[in-house]
């Protein structure tokens, strides 16, 4: 903040006074954040602690208990659904990545780098309500006659998820690839690497921040979604979000629902933490934020 070089004692004293003054003003300016932060404590942080309290108390007696968490492993039904959700999220994320990465490469390649409208067209659906996009997929599925039974139900749900979350994978990948220094890939090719080698040894490692934020924006949202299964699937394709939603729909299920929400919260915190470790805090958020 204070860049002044201390030449003489007088100048030093003056600079310090100025610094003190500036600090006082700085404190005043940071106070502008107070209303929002105070409201956040009341409406965001306190509710999470109340949820935590619910998670550890009995719905009838209100006594402290671990039973709500025990239900998670009892009979394994909830943990099985969490497992299924994680698997479905993994499949969705991988498909999104395999489609989005080549597309991001193509959009940022010299062949059509300047086609800003094209990039815009791919990003726009992100701003259309996900329920509407899911409904559009439902119509496509009924035209294609994809049945609502057996394994096909998973195809329906995964298709809906890929379609819904695809732009969220594409955007961070595109912004990291289009911002990449082209001379690096040129250098790699000048040094004799084949295009495939360049892709795997130069481009891919350099796009890690984009990949990480793409995965973050697809993986956990898939685990916690409930609308897609409600619209395209059935109880077999319930995601972890459906279970939480279900418990909160019955007035006696809030304590168990809170416990499950808490598990989801921990999972999200862990994935964000891992993401930060991989990228050392430099995730590519792209233009949407």
């Amino acid at each position: 903040m204070n860049d002044s070089v201390n030449v003489t004692a007088v100048a030093d004293d003056g600079a310090r006074k100025k610094d003190v003054k500036r600090k006082m003003r700085g404190i005043k300016r940071s106070a502008f954040a107070f209303p929002y932060l105070a409201l956040s404590v009341i409406f965001v942080i306190v509710p999470l602690f109340i949820m935590l309290y619910y998670a550890f108390t009995d719905s009838v007696t209100g006594a402290f208990t671990f039973d709500n968490f025990k239900r998670f492993t009892d009979g394994w039904s909830a943990s099985l659904i969490l497992g299924k959700s994680l698997l479905a999220a993994l499949v969705t994320t991988v498909i999104c990545f395999l489609l989005a990465y080549p597309l991001a490469l193509a959009l940022s390649s010299t062949a059509l780098n300047k086609k800003f409208v094209l990039v815009m067209l791919f990003i726009l659906p992100m701003w259309i309500n996900s329920l509407l996009r899911t409904y559009a997929i439902k119509i496509v599925l009924s035209i294609l006659n994809v049945p609502e039974t057996g394994f096909a139900i998973w195809i329906r749900v995964i298709m809906g998820m890929v379609y819904d979350f695809f732009p969220f994978m594409l955007l961070p990948l595109y912004s990291v690839l289009s911002g990449m220094d082209r001379s690096l890939t040129e250098a790699s090719q000048d040094l004799g690497a084949s295009p495939v080698q360049t892709l795997f040894k130069v481009t891919l490692p350099l796009s890690v921040p984009g990949i990480v934020s793409g995965v973050l924006m697809v993986f956990m949202p898939t685990v916690s979604t409930f609308a897609i299964s409600d619209i395209l699937g059935n109880t077999d394709t319930y995601m972890f979000g459906n279970i939480i939603n279900q418990w909160f729909n019955s007035s006696s299920g809030w304590n168990i629902g809170s416990a499950y929400s808490f598990i989801l919260l921990i999972l999200i915190a862990v994935t964000v933490l891992i993401a930060n470790l991989i990228t050392k805090g430099k995730t590519e958020t792209g233009g949407i934020l």
Binding site: A33, Y36, L37, S40, V41, F43, V44, I45, V46, P47, L48, I50, M51, Y54, M220, P221, V223, S224, F226, G241, I244, N245, F248, W254, G257, S258, S261, L264, L265, I268, V272
Partner: peptide, 24 residues
């Protein structure tokens, strides 16, 4: 700290934010 607080609702699953509001 302030950035962390502002990030809570963005990083958190919407369903968790929703049910936390409901309980509150």
């Amino acid at each position: 700290t302030a950035n962390f607080v502002a990030n809570i609702t963005m990083e958190n699953a919407e369903i968790v934010t929703g049910v936390a509001f409901m309980i509150f």
